[in-house]
Design a protein around this nucleic acid. Structure first.
Length: 217
DNA sequence: AAAACGGGGGC
DNA sequence: GCCCCAGTTTT
């Protein structure tokens, strides 16, 4: 698929974007939508479904929505609050550790550069990019499994891993061309073009989807 | 029973 | 780059 065709598809998606803005939904209920709550929400979200993350975040941020307040909670308290997200034990420790690092090294503020974010223990490249994208509006290619799967499905790139896709997109697309691309594709992958049961009936890409022929529902 | 979920760290 | 880690919901 050529770049032009790819962008045409993105336009089709963008036209109905407001109907499936799942990432925005993930953070809008986060008690107060701040870089800190976004960072913590993202830490909680890995290997866990959105609904669980949302509920856990709501309960946790009702108790503490700043690093100072979070450190006043014991690790056990945090753990029992965020249950039943996956890996709750590890995540509770991570939430507390990151909060302490923010206070000690960043005056309690969430840093806004990739390098500083990754230096926080428990924050890797994926989490860091998601935070940059959602908390600071950075146009980064935060390629996750959805984005990786979709650009390969459409045939825009051919790669084996999300990391490789990430590098290709950063190389092939100018920053302004990446604008909004990630949130668009993640939402699309979560709501319409799901891995297992794609909702092809509601799909705005029916016409240009290479796989539409081999699918029934 | 198996898949699915926007990983990270240590080496 | 490779391997290990760890848990819950949904199907």
């Amino acid at each position: 698929m050529t770049k032009e065709t790819f962008f045409h598809c993105l336009e089709l998606l963008r036209a109905e974007y407001s109907k499936w803005d799942a990432p925005a939904k993930r953070f809008e209920n986060a008690y107060r939508r701040t870089p800190y709550t976004i960072l913590i929400s993202t830490l909680l979200s890995f290997q866990t479904r959105d609904e669980m993350t949302l509920e856990a975040g709501k309960r946790l941020f009702a108790l503490a929505d700043t690093p100072e307040a979070m450190l006043r909670l014991s690790e056990e308290k945090i753990a029992e609050t965020i249950y039943p997200v996956g890996f709750w034990r590890k995540k509770a420790a991570s939430v507390r550790h990151v909060s302490r690092e923010l206070l000690e090294r960043h005056k309690g503020e969430v840093p806004s550069t990739l390098r500083e974010l990754i230096e926080l223990k428990g924050v890797g490249p994926k989490t860091a990019k998601i935070v940059l994208e959602n908390a600071f509006g950075a146009e980064v290619a935060a390629v996750d499994t959805h984005v990786h799967r979709l650009v390969n499905l459409l045939g825009f790139v051919r790669s084996r891993s999300p990391e490789e896709t990430d590098r290709i997109l950063e190389r092939e697309l100018l920053p302004e061309e990446r604008k909004g691309l990630n949130r668009l594709l993640v939402s699309f992958g979560q709501v319409i073009c799901r891995p297992r049961h794609p909702d092809c009936d509601r799909c705005p890409l029916k016409e240009c989807c290479p796989a539409s022929q081999s699918r029934s529902s």
